[in-house]
Amino acid sequence: MSKIDDPNELQFRQVNPSWMEEDGPSRLAFIPTRKDDGKLSLDRSATTTPKDSYDDFKSLGLNSDGVYGLTPQEMADEPCPVECFESPLENNPHHSHAEFKELSNSQKKRKSQELRRKAVVRGKLHP
C-alpha cells in the first residue's frame, strides 16, 4: 500500500442512493462506514473512468446513485487533512482509499462536510 503521488489525480467515490437527494449527496457519503475500518473507499482515475468505476461497483451487487470526484490534494487540505493510498483489491484493481483513522468523530464530520462541498462544486461525474 503506497501513497498516491499525484496530488491532482481524481479519486472516484460512489454514493449510495439513500445518500442522495435531488441536489446532491449527504456528507455521510464522505465518511468511512463502520465496515470500512476508517478507510474511505475510492477508485483511481489513473486506471479507470467514472463510468467503468460505476459499472464495476454495481456489478459487485452494490448500489450507487452516482460518482463524485476528489483529489488527494483536496483530501490533504486543512482542516483535518487525510492522505490517499492505492489499495487494489482482488475484485477491484483500481481501488484506493483515504485514511480517516487518525480523525476523531467530530473531525470526521467536519472533514466530510469539506469533501462534500468540493465534490458538489465539481459535480456528479457519472451517470
Binding site: S18, W19, E21, G24, R27, L28, R34, R116
Partner: peptide
Amino acid sequence: FRIFPTEDGGISLEFEKDGWSFA
C-alpha cells in the same frame, strides 16, 4: 432540509446556507 439515513438506523438532517453547512 436534506434528509438521509445513517448506517445505524438514525437520521442525518443536513442543510446549507451562505457557505455554511449544518447537520
